[in-house]
Amino acid sequence: MKFNYSTKDIVTLIVVGVIMGIVSTANGFLFSALFVLPYGNIISGFIGFIWYIAGPLVMFLVRKPGMAFLGEAVMGVMSVITGHPAGIAMMGWIALEAIGTELPYLCTGYKKFGLVQMLIGAELAGLFSYWFGIYFYSTYQYGWQAVWYPYLGFVAISWLGGLIAYYIGKGLLKTGVVGSNFEDTDQTGITN
């Protein structure tokens, strides 16, 4: 595995990270506003997927090892800088989600960068993030019920982040602003 990122890759990473960071901050505000409502811990889970777009998207655009991880990480740092309500505590979640989005690529040896990997990545990110939440708030003390309800919102829908990333990525490939990257190098393997 080589981390030979070019400046162009870094810059792509930053642009997506910054944009999604701001979106993530906005989402954070929405999330905490929803969370305090009655049934908030279920409802708020349904917008969690927005946090898992950045990683798969960056990986789709750049296709080099570690890019999904970094995409999530930059997104997280940016959202802390732009004033995410969870503040610095955000980093805990981000670290796990970053690993989650990277894992499917790692397991397939960075050969394929298609929809499947993106969906699984986002889903894993949702799961990891959710388990961290349970640990962080120590809700596991209260039995399975505590795990069950939020599961509906949070984990059931987090794959949507991967799907959205896929559509945005496809759209960008069509414009030709990215993607000339893969045509003449050996990192092809765009599924479908």
């Binding site: 070019s6 400046t7 162009k8 000339s180 990257n181 045509e183 003449d184 190098t185």
Partner: peptide, 10 residues
Amino acid sequence: GIIPQVMNAR
């Protein structure tokens, strides 16, 4: 050398 080294031009 940005072309061809950075841009993927040939």
